[in-house]
Design a protein around this nucleic acid. Structure first.
Lengths: 368, 368
DNA sequence: ATTTCAGATGAATCGACAC
DNA sequence: CGTGTCGATTCATCTGAAA
């Protein structure tokens, strides 16, 4: 198990490997502030009692594994507190964490996240399109699980690829409820006996959305409860580096085989939509300097209620107000702020178009 | 403020009134083990900072009321602990509680529910069909809120009208994610100035589903954060008794007026299904739940030969026949089958139009 | 009377960067 | 650290005026 490549400033990181052992110990062995994202799917502490059969008398294969057994809420809380603290230490200042759980454990995780100073950004509902029904008719169909997305601290500059997620959602802002099918069919990994390799394997679609939306290519993603390696598989596909931690050799074995077969998407496919924020800043004055606008030219407001005149230093005058395109626009509209680039227009071919098109010309030149 | 009627074994209960004061004190003044259901919509502790403007520069009317301010998580936790303990004391042994919150507070509520011995039955996601967007593009649209349904203790025989909720969902088991619009339009209560009377008024459709699904007619439902009285209004419509507790006279005033105007549905309409039904294609029950139709409303057959009455769970009664809109239509026509959506009509603007137009409205929302 | 369009609004933890 | 400036950013629905 060797690192396939190294990154500057993270020399000791065992990238793209599966660490063998207890997740708290292993996280504590890593350098602090070295990881961009943590995705954690910890034991849910289901507290199941007895067997459950379907109406056709077939037995439900419940999650009764030893790793999901805790003696009390207090024991579960101590476990949660310890692994979250270890996770927080290795997160970069602008790193973030995702956790997933059900009503059995997610409230305790969420409260502890807040207690430790994580700053919750969203809770996200994974709405299962094909959940297991409630066979006894005693409760509502448990048709969702909850994820929590949190930055390391309040005010941190977390990564959020807004435009990419918006594009995923057909041009509409991505919401906090995600409709995705559970993991089954060909995606569900089997062991040598043809049994499911892991009782709670998560769908790759879920990780795809998480990783695409909240990391950049080349980021380091750690999963302390790696299981069969869904996080690693999607990270690899998307050109991110992963670190898995898993206690059980049986799961590691399946994960290693899986990861070896995964192919990275090519670089072009990993390009995502970006916001204007990521583009270089162009001072309005450059339009004058470069002759796109001349001192004395008139600008018209989008709503046609106001006019302004361009001056040689890149400020404008509208009515009594002088200043930047933003300041004058805000003053004339009585608004707290104003984006002058989209507010002010010029006449071109008889039509009025925002001056933003001039900025776009300059930006396209800069990209060449 | 006097009780309108009394129940056996609950002599001291101030039924169908609004108690004035702090909810913890008022709950402590009630006899223990006397209430069937508690619905609680406590302050969310939003911790907002500064103003937020929409892209068009209009200001968002934020929830900045004094009652939502807490100095710390510790202060909020103490508040939560105290009111939940008071609530648990007055619950009957087989009683249950619903709480609603957002990621700001729901994890702390859920953990404390478990700590006090409540037994979580489901967490339910209210997926808003028309949420407020994220204006800055910095996070996911906060498009849902979370409810928790819990019994007083593990093993308690809580009330769950499985068949009624299944009928409301057109023959499919009700899931843990509910798509409902936020409260606006005519349902949103205004004060004397035409401003919204309460910043966080919940939709009646949400309470309809809660109360129909987890109480029986005649049950006592207490709401310790009564606000403008949505819980009381729906409880009254559905033939349950309510007790409201509200600190603010301004809210109590609006609630009193509202409750006086609410009419109880007649007894027949409150009967809910107890047997299985065929599986139609679209949930007629949602028309009732959402207020497009009211229990007791009359439907007219296309040929004007028959009439039927709507019931609270989305079934109808025509002559001797009870069942879905399709079943009743078929029976009355002596036909093997019948499309109830086009067969049954309502009077609208003096004309009779098929109920299908109401379904179309809902469908257009569901496409979101 | 009917359609169209502009405006308003909803539980929201909603910048980045230079100086 | 604070302060000032640039400038990026919204979806579904309801209301009411205008056509």
């Amino acid at each position: 198990m060797t690192s396939t490549h190294k990154k500057k400033g993270a020399d000791a990181l065992p990238l793209n490997t599966i660490l063998e052992g207890d997740c708290i110990e292993m996280m504590n062995s890593l350098p602090e502030a070295s990881v961009d994202l943590i995705f954690a799917d910890p034991p849910y502490n289901l507290q199941l009692k007895g067997d459950l059969h379907r109406p056709d008398n077939s037995k439900v294969d419940a999650v009764d594994d030893h790793w999901d057994q805790f003696s009390s809420f207090a024991a579960y809380d101590k476990f949660t507190k310890d692994w979250l603290a270890a996770a927080r230490r290795i997160l970069k200042p602008n790193g973030a964490i995702w956790v997933i759980g059900s009503y059995h454990n997610v409230f305790r995780m969420g409260a502890e996240l807040q207690n430790q100073g994580f700053w919750i950004l969203n809770d996200v509902v994974w709405r299962k399109s094909n959940p297991m029904p409630n066979f006894r008719g005693k409760r509502l169909t448990n048709a969702h699980e909850t994820l929590i997305w949190a930055s390391k601290a309040e005010g941190a500059k977390y990564t959020f690829n807004y435009e990419a997620l918006k594009a995923l959602n057909e041009g509409i802002q991505m919401r906090s409820d995600w409709v995705l099918p559970i993991c089954n069919g060909g995606e569900r990994l089997k062991d040598e006996n043809g049994e499911k390799a892991h009782p709670t394997q998560k769908p790759e679609s879920l990780l795809h959305r998480v990783i695409l939306g909240t990391t950049n290519p080349g980021d380091v993603i750690l999963d302390p409860f790696f299981g069969t390696g869904t996080t690693g598989a999607v990270a690899k596909m998307l050109g991110r580096d992963y670190i898995g931690i898993e206690r059980e050799e049986a799961y590691r074995k399946v994960a290693r085989k899986r990861l070896a077969a995964v192919r990275r998407f090519d670089k072009e496919a990993l390009q995502v939509s970006t916001s204007k924020r990521a583009q270089p800043r162009v001072p309005f004055g450059q339009l004058v300097e470069r002759g796109f606008l001349r001192p004395g030219d008139e600008l018209y407001s989008l709503n046609k209620r106001h006019k302004a005149k361009v001056r040689a230093d890149g400020t404008i005058v509208g009515g009594e107000v002088k200043g930047s395109i933003h300041q004058v626009g805000a003053a004339l509209e009585g608004a707290p702020s104003c984006n002058g680039w989209t507010y002010w227009c010029i006449k071109r071919d008889g039509k009025e178009v925002p001056i933003d098109i001039l900025r776009q010309q300059i930006r396209s030149e800069m990209n060449n």
